[in-house]
Amino acid sequence: MASQQHHHHVAPVKYYVATFATLLALTILTVAVAQFDFGAMNIVIAMGVAVCKASLVLMFFMGLLWDKKINAVFFLTGLLFLGLFIGFCVLDIGYRGDTDPVESLQYGVKVPVRHAEAEH
């Protein structure tokens, strides 16, 4: 039973420590960047950094890099179908009223929010 045990790839500790350090650095980076307003670019940068951090965790902590490829294929199909879900929902909600502008607007949202100025 112990014959073919060598196959499990045991990564040296420095991989984990390096990943950990980079993750902390990226967290600090994303917080720092968030202090300035880049307008529409805000979400793009935030998502970019988050994707970097996520891929680090995936490859090293979860070991996708040294693992059987089928696990990575499973993970990517999951992401692909999530992308489809977002894409088609945006296709509808983003393009509402494309043939008749009356359909696009939402009106009359009645919510008991006490407005700031009315309050103080």
Partner: peptide
Amino acid sequence: FLVWGHHLFVSGQSDAA
């Protein structure tokens, strides 16, 4: 996974969708 919108043809979905 690409076709569910045909249940929403008359529900006020955008014509592009």
